[in-house]
Design a binder for these strands. Sequence first.
DNA 1: CAATTTT
Length: 695
Amino acid sequence: MPKNKKPAGGRPAKNFEPRYGAKKTGGPSAGSRSPGHRGYRAEPAEAPRKDRWNSEDRDARRGAPAGERPSYNRGERSERPAYGDRNERPAYNRAERSERPAYGDRAPRGDRPSYGDRGPRADRPSYGDRTERPAFNRGDRNDRPAYNRGERSERPAYGGRNERPRFDRDAPRGERPSYGDRAPRGDRPSYGDRNERPAYNRGERSERPSYGDRNDRPAYNRGERSERPSYGDRAPRGDRPSYGDRNDRPARNFGGDRPRYNKDEAPRRSASDFYPAKDEKARFTPEEDVVLERLEAQATTAADVDGVSFGDLGLGDNICRQLASMGAAAPFAIQAATIPDVLAGKDVLGRGKTGSGKTIAFGSPVVERLMENNGGKDRKQGRAPRALIMAPTRELAMQIDRTVQPIARSVGLFTTTIFGGVPQHKQVMSLRRGVDIIIATPGRLEDLVEQGHIDLSNITITVLDEADHMCDLGFLEPVQRILRATKADGQRLLFSATLDKGVAAIVKEFLKDPAVHEVAGEDQASSTIDHRVLVVEHRDKPMVIEQLASREGKTLIFARTRAYAEQLADQLEDAGIPATSLHGDLNQSRRTRNLQLLTSGRVNVLVATDVAARGIHVDDIDLVIQADAPDEYKTYMHRSGRTGRAGKQGTVVTIIPRTRQRRMNELLGRAEISADMVPAQPGDELLDQLATATV
DNA sequence: CAATTTT
């Protein structure tokens, strides 16, 4: 399918333009779409502004800061074939879902308030329709008179509506969940700018569960949690349909080929050396064994840290107090090792075991440094961010924010998350209000930079979490471009549990004489994880997985592909094991919700791709099943690091075919893991033993 | 193969 074909007759173009046109000349357009949202206005204040944009004033606006220009009307955009191919992607068996009563016997769906009046799942058009629906084929949208129903013009006009298909649009209205039943928008924490709303935080923050605690790093906050009111009486997050639901399928195919920086529009802000064209030759030269080979890592042991406090490391009182309130009373080894160097302004490479507290290791000193630099006083609107933390997945970005944000707020600094899969508007608004620390995934960050909404030129500290992964193919180049846009002499921090020479390209170009830290005695031998490898006949695999997964505790299953993850989740549900999935074929809302299903314990089995392999923390996962063996030893280490956190016991079971034994042994060797490798088939008692080992 | 953008 011609991915880039320009449809005859320029239909998509036609469909794009009227959309924008209609927005401007047509009815009013509200930025917020539901009553209760903090920005909601019955008489949209934004409407007049749009008119102005549309008028001849445009010339007058020429000189306006980039962030305020309606820069979205770029020509070539509308000519692009839009999202056509999305619909052509395989459905991954979603359709079958609707045929099964599965969700009916699943956890107490019916108990949940907001969905109470919805029909049973099977009656609804179901997500299965999605792929058949021209979801993103905006083309049809404007042609459908249905959406111009009378009340439309009275409504706030849903400016962005066309752009965000909601589920079940095609269904008769009566059958769709009425949006009025939803929790008011304002009650739902929004991804991007949570911290921007003073109402939500401030002093109480530390006493509250602070969104972060939900599935954050282990040690912090555990005990207090149960004592606190917690958001228990709120509708569980996962139940509140949210932004992402509108795109049923996230965009993919991120046009790696798409030329960045629309040629006809020079970057306006930081015009100078922004993203120097492509690469002055590939920087990655494998034979340069820099980093950990040449630079001796300074090992810190837990004993070295004994009796040391965060204050001793150089953090200020507010931050120390905040850390204590988050459950981090005293620094972990990796934190004690790196914090002083970070505070000293050095570039740092930090390697600490999965779940060893890396987020605080970089988060708290970054906050401290920013505070030092401006005396905590510079809060002018729209100030440019000064620190940037990048992560490979959205979930991880959110999780980092949950840890860093309270620390930042404790000294009056603001953070915001920037990632894709959700409407950008809120993110842009927070940026305009001014933030100090951006926590981002590379794609959306670059997008907003290109749009002129983000100025990276004042970024003095950049952190790469999961740094080795950020240097993998597909991430490396965007990361390089972003780093080049930050202050040239800025401080850079690279953290990962598997930090290796793969980061050489970044280190060489961007770090100066970095301090390298690792924590001694944190090898797999000292780990609390029991590693097993099961050699299983291909035909037995489904049943073996079922047997392993039908258990009490939380189980995380890794699959290599999204399709298989989805299929496995379906299979388990069919078998009566409540399970959900997490992978890139889900929209962000469902990703967030499904992960929340596991953290909340509503579902005990999550089947995920490697999107969940790194960084994300869920309490008490005691069994990790690798339905497909990983290709890389590092992947093995990260996946297995989802269990056995905070010193708890965990089991990792890897299922392989006979033909993979040798490769598996090599991989385990590289990971320095010793694991029993035994044949297994359904019904084996061993499987039950493994399933119940930790429950 | 997965992950990473679409206002």
